[in-house]
Design a protein around this nucleic acid. Structure first.
Lengths: 206, 206
DNA sequence: GAGATATTAGGACAGGCGTCCTATGCGGTG
DNA sequence: CACCGCATAGGACGCCTGTCCTAATATCTC
């Protein structure tokens, strides 16, 4: 805490405010007030608002990378790792109900603004997609790994958006349970793998 | 076209611009330019920007109601109606890839802005939820109708968000196919209904 | 055609924004 | 103690925003 630099404080406050209020709606004055520094002093650490945004995105990317790395260290089973990802919406349910998914909402906003940093924001999605794909590949679903990864991602975005709109915690838990059930067909031994492949394999890649 | 009032033109242009650029990012000047009227003239038809937003939301609500009514007239089978809803993401794939879901993105933005019209925007979600619930009820799933309705809604939001982020049409089609497969267990005759109830009934409502 | 009403145009206003500039304070080094 | 570079403060700037006001123009009624 005390060891953190002013720049870090700015990035942290901006991260939180961008998440809670949106990027465009968050003014320099608001960040300055949160960090308790003067407006003018911003431009010593960052050269523009875009610059702060990029720093925030980079910080988020790094934090997600770190999270995934920890999961990999703690959980050897790829299926267990995927389940951890699915559990995010439960773990962060309070924030999600209040503000939605940080990644999804920022990406959507930057797209509407035509902001040049949209691509960087999208990299967080790509990070998750690649990581999930890797886990499915290790489970023996190499051909369909990307499709399955995207399905899990779509789940989390759908749940986040509706949990935000309706604020219903039970809905989150039901959808997570449903997703765990679905994952069961892909995560167990060869028998279950074969069953899952049979279940919808014929149509999915027509 | 020619029969439309100026007010209608304003609402149409604002609707499109709010969808493409976001509510906050769309200025009065931008709407005025699109409608080809002067800025000042706005306040003859609307008393504030909020007022235009409310008119846009009301128009969207009405258009969705009309759409659902048409589906009900054309399609007697509740399962077919639900399938029509699922197909929205395919039908509107171009817009969705460019701008996301109009309902989801607006709701999310208004929530971040703390805008008083958030509740009205959310009514579109409620409209869909209630309608889907009604269709599932008619299919004989009264107890789980709301849960199933929410699942379909979550599907559409998840697909829309990711299709927007990644711009991949194949992804949309794969997810829609998956959803149709899932619906198959709930839409056929009593035999299939019983099978679906057995499939995950034991855990879903523990 | 005259008058009343409905509609439009365009500028003025105050406030907030991101940005920039300059002066001031702080902390370690010779 | 003098110095120098890092860090900060706070105000000035030009721009754009939503809003409001007033004058001009269409449109309709008798």
């Amino acid at each position: 805490m005390g060891a953190e630099t002013t720049r870090d404080h700015i990035v942290e406050a901006a991260d939180r405010l961008f998440y809670h209020q949106g990027y465009e709606h968050t003014s320099f004055a608001a960040i300055a007030e949160a960090v308790r520094i003067s407006r003018g002093n911003f431009y010593y650490h960052f050269k523009s608002k875009d610059d702060i945004l990029r720093a925030v995105i980079a910080a988020r990317l790094e934090s997600r990378r770190r999270m995934l790395r920890e999961w990999e260290a703690e959980e050897a089973d790829p299926a267990g790792r995927i389940r951890r990802f699915v559990e995010i919406v439960v773990t962060n349910r309070a924030d999600i109900q209040d503000y939605g998914c940080p990644v999804g909402t920022l990406t959507t906003e930057l797209a509407k603004l035509g902001h040049p940093a949209l691509g960087e924001a999208g990299e967080v999605f790509t990070l998750f997609r690649t990581w999930l794909r890797e886990q499915f590949t290790r489970l023996g679903h190499r051909e369909r790994a990307d499709e399955l990864a995207m399905h899990v991602l779509a789940f989390s975005q759908g749940v986040a958006t509706l949990a935000h709109a309706f604020r219903e915690e039970d809905f989150i838990r039901r959808e997570v349970r449903r997703m765990h059930d679905w994952l069961g067909a892909y995560s167990a031994g060869t028998g279950a793998v074969a069953a899952a492949a049979h279940e919808d394999g014929g149509r999915a890649d027509a």
